[in-house]
């Protein structure tokens, strides 16, 4: 069953259509990738899904509930959490407090501290728990964003370029983390430019170009898709 469904979403800025009639659905417990060249509309779609931007038309469903008219706060109660491409950490708080805020806002207020320690350990951030979030390198900061989203105990996790700025070792560990999350039943929608990562972890892929979905399928199908190759490499290819 589709845990997250986007139906015919259009976002228009004046005359420009950032998204036109985008429809994707994300199956529960799977890792779905959203790829496309810069400016394709990936982050805009994330904003629409998480409720930070109202679509001009179209609908969004989470776990069967229509949430199109709900604000970001209410959507998170349906089990949605996300990270941001341009980091949105709570810079004046420590790493641990960043996670604590998320855990305490979620449904598990009482066990918040224990949950946070467990997640810190799982993503390997225990050592940095008391560091101020503002002083982290970009790669680590992205990992903290992921950890913070996890602390909200989401059913659906939206990750916006989580691996940018990570070295190959870190990326490998991050891929393992994603696989183990999916194995536990968390649904993941990931925007990422690192194709090795995308191809190795994603179960399904959607390709977005100029605001339209130009291809959907399994990674190996997408790899051979000529429309996708043209979009990425130019028509000459």
């Amino acid at each position: 069953m589709a845990l997250l469904e986007v139906r015919d979403v259009t976002v228009a800025f004046g005359g420009v259509r950032a998204l036109s009639d985008v429809a994707i659905s994300v199956e529960g417990g799977r890792i779905t990738g959203l790829i496309g060249p810069n400016g394709a509309g990936k982050s805009t779609l994330f904003d629409v899904i998480s409720g930070l931007r109202r679509p001009s038309s179209g609908q969004v469903f989470i776990d069967g509930h229509e949430v199109t008219r709900l604000g970001p706060t209410r959507r998170s109660r349906h089990g949605l959490a996300r990270t941001f491409q341009r980091l949105e950490l709570f810079g004046r708080l420590s790493v641990r407090d960043n996670l604590l805020v998320a855990a305490e806002l979620g449904a598990h207020r009482r066990q918040a501290a224990a949950l946070v320690d467990e997640i810190l350990d799982r993503v390997g951030l225990t050592r940095l728990a008391d560091t101020s979030a503002d002083t982290l390198s970009t790669g680590v900061a992205r990992l903290v964003e992921v950890a913070r989203a996890l602390a909200a105990r989401p059913k659906v996790l939206l990750l916006d370029e989580p691996a940018a700025g990570q070295d190959p070792d870190e990326t490998e560990r991050f891929a393992d983390l994603l696989r183990s999350l999916a194995a536990e039943g968390t649904t993941v929608l990931i925007v990422e430019h690192d194709m090795d990562l995308v191809m190795s972890v994603c179960d399904d892929l959607h390709v977005l170009d100029l605001g339209k979905v130009i291809a959907s399928g399994r990674p190996e199908e997408i790899r051979r898709n000529e429309v996708v190759l043209a979009a990425y490499l130019g028509d000459a290819a």
């Binding site: 706060t73 941001f84 949105e88 004046r92 708080l93 604590l100 806002l105 979620g106």
Partner: peptide, 22 residues
Amino acid sequence: RFGRQLIALRDSEAAYATLGGN
């Protein structure tokens, strides 16, 4: 808890809201 949330909400309203903060 409330103090942490206030600081969080100042640093990023978007993140605060998407995490379920009102």
